[in-house]
């Protein structure tokens, strides 16, 4: 494939799907926009280097999301050593918001903090299963683990989110 052909396809793909990848990355990174941007940039570079595979994939976007998940997990593992983990209690995080915060901002902060308190792989399971609506088998394939692991991680993650987001309605009402 000629380089200009690859480049033009890459630009078209990026123009069409970067926003989608950034939204997914933001969820995986629990709202850390700078980290999400890093993950997206690394993913796009990997896609360019393997553009032949992207072209051969049944769905280029699905291929890209899978690469993005791998990049995130790799980076999260490294980040664990160099970044300070976000372990703030979501309720405390919300309490630190200005009293004038809108309901949307409060909800976002609550959800972000709840996601941040999950481990990277649990977060990936939540995003793949409940944001992209992938089934257990496909999620397991992307994460390279068994379907049983996906089910157990998903159950634990949902229980955790339910515990932290159970007050969402009440909090939303409170700040409305």
């Amino acid at each position: 494939m000629r380089d200009d052909e690859r480049s033009s396809e890459f630009v078209a793909f990026t123009r069409a799907h970067r926003t989608d990848l950034m939204r997914t990355a933001a969820l995986l990174c629990a709202g850390d926009e700078a980290f999400a941007e890093d993950v997206v940039q690394t993913t796009l570079t990997r896609l360019y280097l393997a553009w032949g595979r992207v072209r051969r994939a049944d769905s280029a976007l699905a291929y890209a999301r899978r690469s993005l998940t791998h990049v995130f997990i790799d980076e999260a593992r490294r980040a664990h050593r160099r970044r300070e983990s976000v372990v703030a209690d979501p309720a405390l995080a919300l309490a630190s918001e200005p009293a004038t915060a809108t309901a949307d901002l409060a909800t976002r902060e609550l959800v972000r903090a709840a996601l941040a308190s999950l481990g990277p792989r649990q977060r990936a399971v939540v995003v793949l299963r409940h944001w992209h609506d992938l089934d257990v088998a496909e999620t397991a394939r992307i994460l390279g683990c068994s379907t049983g692991t996906v089910k157990s991680q998903n159950a634990r993650a949902l229980a955790h989110l339910r515990e932290h987001l159970g007050t969402l309605d009440r909090l939303t009402l409170e700040v409305s």
């Binding site: 480049s7 890459f10 630009v11 990026t14 123009r15 970067r18 926003t19 950034m22 939204r23 997914t24 933001a26 969820l27 629990a30 709202g31 926009e33 940039q41 796009l44 570079t45 896609l47 360019y48 280097l49 949307d104 909800t107 976002r108 959800v111 972000r112 996601l115 939540v126 995003v127 409940h130 944001w131 949902l158 989110l161 987001l165 969402l168």
Partner: peptide, 25 residues
């Protein structure tokens, strides 16, 4: 849950020029 996730995913972001991604790649 999807609505909750949307609140994080849908953050407004500045438009990015694909040329920068292409240059990096």
């Amino acid at each position: 849950l999807k609505h909750a996730l949307e609140s994080v995913a849908a953050t407004e972001r500045p438009a990015t020029d694909p040329a920068a991604d292409l240059a990096r790649a």
